[in-house]
Simulated assay, not measured.
Amino acid sequence: MPLIMSFRRWWAAIFVAILLLPALGHFLPDAPAPMRTVLAPEARWWEDAARRLDPWINNTFGFRGAVLAAHRSYVRFIGDSQSRLVLKGEHGALYLNSEKAVEQSIGQVVRPEEVAHFLAFAQRMNAYMTAQGGRFVVVVAPNGQTANFELLPAYARQLKKSPTEFDLVAQGLKAEGVAFADVRPLFTEAKKTGPVHWLYDTHWNRRGALIAFNATMVAAGRPDLQISADDALGPPEPTMKGDLARMGGITPARPDVDYPPKGPTLDQPGQVEMPGVMQPVGMTDPFESYAYSTGHAGPRILVIGDSFTQGFWRGWLAYRASAYGWTHHRYCRFDMGAVERFKPDILIYAPTERAMQCKGEPFVAQDGPGQGGLGQGTPGNATPGNATPTKGGG
């Protein structure tokens, strides 16, 4: 008697083929899925396969993307809040593990269409400010994964690819003639003498913020507006705070480094709020806009940014500007009317790297008064109630 009857042999072959399909994942390109954290089996894996081989299999099996996506959907369905929002790096460094920030910084996620939208948006804003006789500048606050790349887990560093979205934005702005302050090489050089980004927080520290402020003033054609670190920052001191440490419920093993403000970074006397410039935001919105005149000489500077500039830059703007203001970028959907009412000499667009993308369509047909002659395709003409930034968006 044959082991398998002839009419069942085809079914057996199909069944075996289905069982072998996941194995193809070890040899074919990875399907869309979270990054592989293990790129190859450990040496002499056959001596302890459960420990040395299983992690590689778990990172490369077929249908990995679909399986993990299904798992995430199930976790959301049952209301589980134990998702890993914090990634641990080398020497205790912490990183935000959402909004594809890790993948973005190492070039594993590159969205050319969204980069193109951002470049078109920046080009239009540049044309608007040029027509007004002012200056438009872009500065991007690097993700912690970019600023402290050397402290990422080894597997993430090994997956680094070029160009990244940051690279494409820098190249595109240069090609379009838009002023851009690329702080990455400045940070690399500055780290030789001290940190520029917190280890347990998503933000740059005050030293990094000052480097970015000064680079932006240079890009704006006003190097005279720079502020020296000796005038603005006190000596480094230890700190144990950090939003990532709180988010992950992690107690840092060693202190981080902070640079306390002094001199012109502190509140300046004689400031007067400018009424009617900024529209109010909702009571639950942490990103409240502001506009002040300072009573002393200087350009009018308006920053469209996020938490990397909202508080960090405020004292320096007050020190250098005759009038200064800040409003949230809302992913290219900020209140354009605030720009027109403020009438800046220098307009700075300053998103963090993970928030560069324009969410939704940044160019909306809008005619009539209050649009400053921009007409069709006005950038960012949303009211503050629209495109409310997420917590992770800075």
Rank of each mutant, 00 (worst) to 15 (best):
L347F: 04
L19W: 05
M217W: 06
M35P: 01
R320Y: 04
S105I: 08
P351W: 01
L96D: 00
D80P: 06
R184L: 14
R207Q: 07
S105W: 02
R206T: 04
Q271H: 07
Y331G: 10
A147E: 00
G305R: 03
V178T: 01
F61H: 10
A93P: 01
A156I: 15
W204N: 08
D367F: 08
L302N: 01
T309H: 13
L96V: 11
A141P: 02
E47M: 12
G380E: 12
P34Y: 06
G194W: 00
L96G: 03
W204R: 02
L53P: 02
K88S: 02
L199D: 03
P223S: 09
P252D: 11
W204V: 09
D167K: 14
Q268D: 03
F312T: 07
T352F: 00
A190R: 11
D335I: 11
T146F: 03
A338T: 15
C332A: 11
I4K: 14
S289F: 02
G392W: 04
V257R: 15
G311E: 10
L317S: 11
N97L: 05
W11S: 09
V281G: 13
E150T: 13
G25K: 07
P236R: 06
N148D: 08
G249K: 13
A181L: 11
P286D: 08
W326Y: 13
F7Y: 05
D231M: 15
R207H: 03
G311D: 05
P238A: 12
V364C: 07
G337R: 14
N148Y: 01
Q158W: 05
G393K: 05
K343Q: 13
M217P: 03
S162T: 14
M1R: 04
R354F: 00
F342K: 11
D243I: 05
P223M: 08
A116R: 15
A23D: 04
A297M: 10
W10P: 04
M247L: 09
G62I: 14
D30F: 01
W56H: 10
V137R: 01
G270R: 03
T193R: 15
F61L: 15
V196W: 02
D243G: 03
I301G: 04
G315S: 05
F312C: 03
A40N: 11
Q376H: 15
L85A: 13
R320K: 15
M5F: 07
L19E: 08
V178K: 05
